[in-house]
């Protein structure tokens, strides 16, 4: 398959080349940036980098989807361009917009010189002809306000583009993304097609699955699902993020969260909540979990009063179970 074979990756920077030499190297680099990732995640970034494919990341909220993009940008030393999606997002917010104000200002200024331009022109046809010589100056790049997608394409040294919560946008916007994702280019009617300058951006899309993403979009992306982490992985994450927490407490806390996840709650605590909780406990100088402490800090991990009420009775049991968990 000569055509579709991946082109030899031209590294963004020499370090990047080193980083992406293998999945292991990537994983270590992530770890250095305090992002502990599973093999699956590292493989995804590895493939995305080498195959020039966007990654669509799905998973419950708070498992580090956005963080992955941020850390990747950090790691490769690239700019992060972020496009937050919401209902009603359209191309004028996502791709480009004309600088109407500037255009208007310039027309006003040029009004006065208009006569000079038209001087000596006889007849309507000639006048129009001369005006045409101005060409489409007003619709040139000088008057173009690039929005995140266009910015990402124009970034000289490549960049990481994060399209956050793509499921919040409309169906129409998804279709708008297709050209960008498959060919790394956008078409602007007045100017033409803008292609990625040198290196196509590394694109991350995240979705919380509030609605099904269209097949067309999925087809163009690698699909990474980040689940809640296994206990070991979560421990390592906490260790990396909150290093000052005592190991015993860390084990206990992760155990507790893992227990909670198996319960029927409205909102299951994610990694971000675990981290917050760990920070809270460190702040409170706690060195072990006891039911009272849990009860008083429960609002850090559970965000609904309903959930808090429902587990209130079970806190002692949960705490002891979490402690016996290894």
């Amino acid at each position: 398959m000569p055509e579709s074979s991946p082109t030899a990756p031209t590294a963004i920077t020499p370090e990047a080349e080193q980083l992406t030499a293998s999945v292991k190297a990537l994983q270590d680099a992530f770890e250095e940036h305090r992002y502990i990732c599973s093999d699956q995640i590292a493989t995804a970034v590895y493939l995305a980098y080498h195959l020039h494919k966007p990654i669509l990341i799905e998973g419950p909220p708070g498992v580090g989807k956005t963080e992955l993009a941020k850390t990747t940008a950090d790691m490769f030393n690239l700019d992060l361009i972020r496009l937050q999606c919401y209902e009603g997002l359209d191309e004028s917010k996502a791709i480009y917009e004309w600088k109407y104000g500037k255009q208007l200002l310039y027309t006003q200024v040029l009004k006065e010189t208009l006569e000079d331009v038209l001087q000596g022109a006889t007849g309507f046809a000639e006048s129009v002809g001369r005006l045409h010589e101005f060409g489409d100056i007003f619709f040139s790049e000088d008057f173009l306000e690039p929005r995140p997608l266009l910015k990402a394409l124009k970034a000289e040294d490549g960049c990481v583009l994060l399209i956050d919560e793509v499921d919040k946008s409309d169906h129409e916007f998804e279709s708008l993304l297709l050209e960008m994702l498959s060919d790394f280019q956008v078409s602007i009617p007045e100017i033409g097609t803008v292609k990625a300058v040198r290196e196509p951006p590394l694109v991350f899309l995240t979705s919380n699955n509030t609605r099904e993403i269209s097949d067309a979009l999925k087809r163009r992306c690698l699909h990474l699902y980040i689940p809640f982490p296994e206990p070991d992985l979560e421990q390592r994450i906490i260790e990396a993020r909150v290093p000052e927490i005592p190991p015993e407490l860390r084990k206990h806390l992760v155990g507790f969260i893992q227990e909670l996840r198996s319960m029927d709650l409205k909102k299951i605590p994610a990694i971000s909540e675990t981290i917050d909780w760990a920070r809270t406990l460190v702040l409170l100088h706690a060195d072990s979990l006891d039911p009272d402490l849990v009860r008083s800090t429960l609002n850090v991990i559970l965000k609904f009063q309903e959930d808090i009420d429902s587990i209130d009775n079970e806190i002692p049991a949960l705490t002891s179970r979490a402690a016996s968990r290894r």
Binding site: M1, S4, S5, P6, L47, H50, L51, K53, L222
Partner: peptide, 10 residues
Amino acid sequence: LDAFSAVELV
């Protein structure tokens, strides 16, 4: 096709 490129890589 993506799968083939991926396999080629890994």
